[in-house]
Amino acid sequence: MRQNPSFAFTDVAELRRLIDRNPWVTLVSATPEGLTASHYAVLLDEERDDLTIVGHVGRPDDAIHGLGERELLVVVQGPHGYISPNWYGDGPAVPTWNFVSAHLSGVPEILSAEENLAVLDRLVARFESRMPDPRMMWERPNDADFVTKLERGTVGFRLTPTKVVAKRKLSQNRPDDVVETIIGELSGDGPFRNPALAAEMRRSQDARAAARAGDAG
């Protein structure tokens, strides 16, 4: 991903927030047969405060990706959406796409069976807990044999990225009034309504306003 200083995204706490809120990622690796991509959910490593993630792949994706042997690229995609030139005012303008994304690269570490089970348990709990009547991984009708067979069909990994390229393109290069117009359009009921992107732009706009106020003080 080509970086632009105006849209560079380097704050670790904000990157952790991006990963936590957008756990469905794309795994990309270069194999002897060419590029391969897979899609899985990941979690931040709860034992770390950096950008280390944990996850799993189903067999034989571990062999296809050369998991643990080759560099893995993890693409995290946050809110994104179309921005109409109509929202910029009367001057010359073209459409664009606003987005938040991060690329994490490194050679992952393969987890032990026990570590993998713990990650699978966390993953189920993370999402199933939102159900009105949650069914956690170890609860009946699942039994120990079933869960063990489930684990054996997967390979867990931990990735501490050695390279991070992240970009937050949220119209930061536009005047405040234009940004407010875009947020309003994305929050409205038009054809490109996108509350998630509007909320991300509001967060960015408020942070920039606070930073400017701090500089002025």
Rank of each mutant, 00 (worst) to 15 (best):
P95A: 05
V94H: 04
V124N: 05
G184Y: 07
V94S: 11
R21M: 10
V147T: 09
L111S: 02
E71N: 12
R135S: 15
M131R: 13
S105L: 03
A63D: 08
E71S: 11
A63R: 10
G34H: 07
R203N: 07
L27R: 03
Q205D: 13
A196C: 04
E109N: 03
L15S: 00
A113F: 05
L186P: 02
N142G: 09
P195R: 01
V57D: 01
L170Q: 01
R168Y: 12
N142E: 14
S84W: 02
D215M: 04
R122F: 11
L51C: 08
D11N: 06
H39I: 09
E47P: 02
T160R: 03
F127I: 08
D133T: 15
F7D: 00
A102Q: 00
V155W: 00
E14G: 11
A144E: 15
G66V: 15
A8L: 02
N4I: 13
N142C: 08
V107P: 05
N98L: 11
L197M: 04
H80S: 13
E46R: 07
K149A: 13
T148P: 10
V164H: 02
D61R: 12
L170N: 06
A118P: 05
R70P: 04
S129Y: 09
D62F: 13
V178N: 03
K169Q: 08
N142S: 13
P95K: 11
A13G: 03
S204H: 09
R70Q: 14
T26E: 07
A210W: 06
V76F: 13
K163L: 14
A13C: 04
L104G: 02
Y40K: 06
E151C: 15
P60Q: 08
P195K: 01
T181F: 01
W24H: 15
E200G: 10
G89L: 08
E69T: 06
S129L: 08
P60S: 14
A207F: 03
P108Y: 05
